[in-house]
């Protein structure tokens, strides 16, 4: 069975940044080689999880880092500042650390960048930190020559303490797959702003810190919650593929039950892009034991950021590592995005 074929190119191209099989191969073949092994009971680079976990006595120190490059820097529903905070806070929450201790923030600024713009981005960083119940304790600033980067790049790192680590593996046949809300909002909202497409829509990014919602779900579901993954780059498809691959299970998804906004469906139809490979920045995918599924779903729906949550599928023994989509008309293997999302005509 050929699955994510190992990618051996001499040069790193755009497809290595989409969150799919190519990126995972790159990490395995280069980045994790001889690094990241923290020994028994710890989680390092090789696990390719949303973050790392270091045992401290009977608790864990969780660390995660993320770089943010988004064009445009300000978009409907948020900006690069909100994205930088939410991205790292959510990755910590995906490991079970829902009370971030602190964040760092390193900025690389293009020569000539507007001071007013920087102030407003830091205003939204402050607001997002407050919403997530954390703050920025250290950072770094670099300025590069004009034209050497696209305005601004932000890297954030987060640390948190947790008693229990939730990985993105460990699923078994029968476990239920749950998404905390509508899929594809961020990726297609960004795509719709590209002026030359001249689309007029109220579609906004879903970018938001979801640690409080995840905390509520963990309190309700406890050990019944087996796996957590935020479906950012590569969308729901890449998140599900990683969960299926790491747990060695197949996943069958009931497509009609996946919550989608009308505008996301419309922009997807117009541009020929599947919302299931479009990024989300304020959502999570839960893998839950059958008996805990209902309780976890209610807990998530009780939170404003989780009101559209739904159970969308389950794990099966057949075709480990594959994700099958039951479309209501038939079924197909869900594929991962190849390279950046591009509008299609055919």
């Amino acid at each position: 069975m050929t699955r994510n074929a190992r990618f051996i190119d001499e040069r790193i191209t755009l497809k290595y940044g989409t969150g799919g099989g190519a990126m995972r191969a790159l990490i395995e073949q280069i980045f994790a080689k001889g690094l990241g092994d923290l020994g028994e009971g710890n989680i390092g680079l090789a696990a390719m999880d949303d973050g790392a976990a270091i045992r401290l006595g009977d608790r864990y120190l969780v660390i995660t880092t993320d770089s943010h490059v988004v064009q445009p820097i300000v978009f409907p529903g948020g900006d690069i500042g909100k994205l930088a905070v939410a991205g790292t806070v959510n990755d910590l929450a995906m490991m079970g650390a829902t009370d971030p201790l602190a964040l760092t923030c390193a900025a690389i600024v293009e020569d000539g960048f507007s001071r007013e713009m920087l102030k407003s981005i830091w205003e939204s960083i402050r607001a997002s930190c407050e919403e997530a119940g954390t703050t920025i304790v250290t950072g770094d600033t670099k300025v590069m020559g004009h034209g050497e980067l696209d305005g601004l790049v932000l890297n954030t790192t987060g640390v948190g303490i947790t008693d229990r680590i939730v990985t993105d593996a460990g699923l078994e046949p029968g476990d239920q797959i749950l998404v905390t809300g509508t899929m594809g909002d961020h990726g297609l909202a960004i795509m719709a702003t590209r002026n030359e497409l001249a689309l007029e829509t109220e579609l906004v990014s879903d970018v938001a810190p979801i640690n409080a919602m995840v905390r509520r779900a963990l309190e309700a579901g406890g050990d019944g919650i087996i796996a957590l993954k935020d479906p950012t780059r590569g969308g729901l498809s890449s998140a599900l593929h990683e969960m299926a691959e790491k747990s060695g299970v197949g996943i069958v998804i009931d497509e009609p039950s996946i919550p989608l906004r009308d505008e996301v469906r419309a922009v997807g139809e117009l541009l020929g892009i599947d919302p299931l490979v479009s990024a989300n920045e304020g959502k999570a995918v839960f893998g839950v034991r059958p008996e805990s599924a209902a309780g976890v779903l209610d807990a998530i729906r009780s939170h404003p950021l989780g009101r559209n949550a739904a159970i969308v599928g389950e794990c099966v023994a057949e075709r480990p590592g594959f994700v099958v989509l039951d479309t209501g008309f038939g079924s197909r293997l869900l594929s991962e995005a190849e390279g950046e999302l591009l509008p299609r005509i055919c």
Partner: peptide
């Protein structure tokens, strides 16, 4: 492909 019809044929 999108509607998975091939599996239904």
């Amino acid at each position: 492909a999108k509607f998975g019809l091939r599996a239904a044929f």
